[in-house]
Simulated scan of single mutants.
Amino acid sequence: MKASQVILVAIGVVVLAAVGYMFTAAESPEAYLDKIEKERDRQFKYIRYNIESPLTEEQKRNFKTLDFYEIDPTYKVKARLIPIEDKKVREVPLTDGSVQRYIEHSYAEFELGGKTNKLLLLQSKEETDMRNFFLAFADETSARETYGGGRYINVRQDGKNSITIDFNLAYNPYCAYNPDYACPIPPKENLMDIAILAGEKNYSK
């Protein structure tokens, strides 16, 4: 066998091994569903029992469940990370009229609902892990099936130029449960004109 053929065979073996690893290491549908269910159970227990829960003691006594959309893997998207070169501090309005300061870090661009969407990723000025971001958004379900003030997702950069956004993990801000809390309002860039039928629905008292 010629040296060039040996190299080609070796490359082929490496490629096949990489593909095989990709399929074996990939999360199975069952494992994914289990992971989301566990996170939802954790959310419920926190809201129901934690001392820092936004619910009043009276609300806790009557609190039975959180309401979610069915888990839909199509709402887990891989987004292109588009850095903002001239990063600025934005004063994000809160529901009580005050403001909270975040860094405008980057945009996440992805395909969903038959169109290209681009959402602004914010980063807390106190964040110590530069791969963590805060995503506040509203969509066509807001004030209908979901909280009118929008929902949140905590996202983490998982590639050099990419980030995974899983809308199945979208959760309500504290003010959805108790108006005494002040919560960040989604920036205008994140008012989506498609329905995100994933994540937490509105809280019913």
Rank of each mutant, 00 (worst) to 15 (best):
K76T: 14
V77N: 02
V77I: 15
K78A: 09
A79R: 09
R80Y: 01
R80T: 14
R80D: 13
I82K: 10
P83G: 07
D86N: 15
D86H: 13
K87N: 11
K88V: 13
V89Q: 14
E91N: 13
E91I: 03
E91W: 03
L94A: 05
T95E: 09
T95W: 12
T95F: 10
D96E: 04
D96S: 11
S98R: 12
V99C: 00
V99I: 11
V99R: 06
R101T: 12
R101H: 11
I103D: 08
I103M: 13
E104M: 09
S106R: 01
Y107C: 04
E109D: 07
E109M: 09
F110T: 00
E111M: 12
L112A: 10
L112C: 04
L112E: 07
K115V: 15
K115N: 04
T116V: 15
N117D: 08
N117L: 15
K118Q: 15
K118L: 12
K118D: 06
L119T: 09
L120Y: 12
L121F: 14
L121H: 14
L122S: 06
L122F: 13
E127P: 11
M130L: 15
N132R: 13
F133I: 12
F133K: 07
F134A: 08
F134N: 08
A136D: 02
F137A: 02
F137P: 01
F137K: 02
F137C: 04
A138R: 09
D139P: 08
D139M: 11
E140D: 12
T141P: 03
T141C: 04
S142N: 04
A143V: 00
R144M: 10
E145V: 06
E145A: 09
E145Y: 02
T146V: 06
T146M: 02
G148Q: 02
G149Y: 02
G150M: 02
R151P: 02
I153P: 03
I153T: 06
N154C: 00
R156Y: 09
R156N: 10
Q157I: 14
D158L: 10
D158E: 10
G159I: 03
G159N: 05
K160D: 12
N161L: 05
S162H: 12
I163C: 06
I165N: 02
D166R: 04
D166F: 04
D166N: 13
F167N: 00
F167R: 01
L169W: 01
L169G: 03
L169F: 06
A170Y: 03
Y171S: 05
N172V: 04
N172P: 05
N172W: 01
N172Y: 01
P173F: 12
C175F: 01
C175H: 09
C175I: 00
C175V: 09
A176P: 08
N178V: 12
N178E: 11
Y181R: 05
A182G: 11
A182R: 08
C183H: 01
C183M: 05
P184A: 06
I185M: 07
P186C: 04
P187F: 04
K188G: 05
K188A: 14
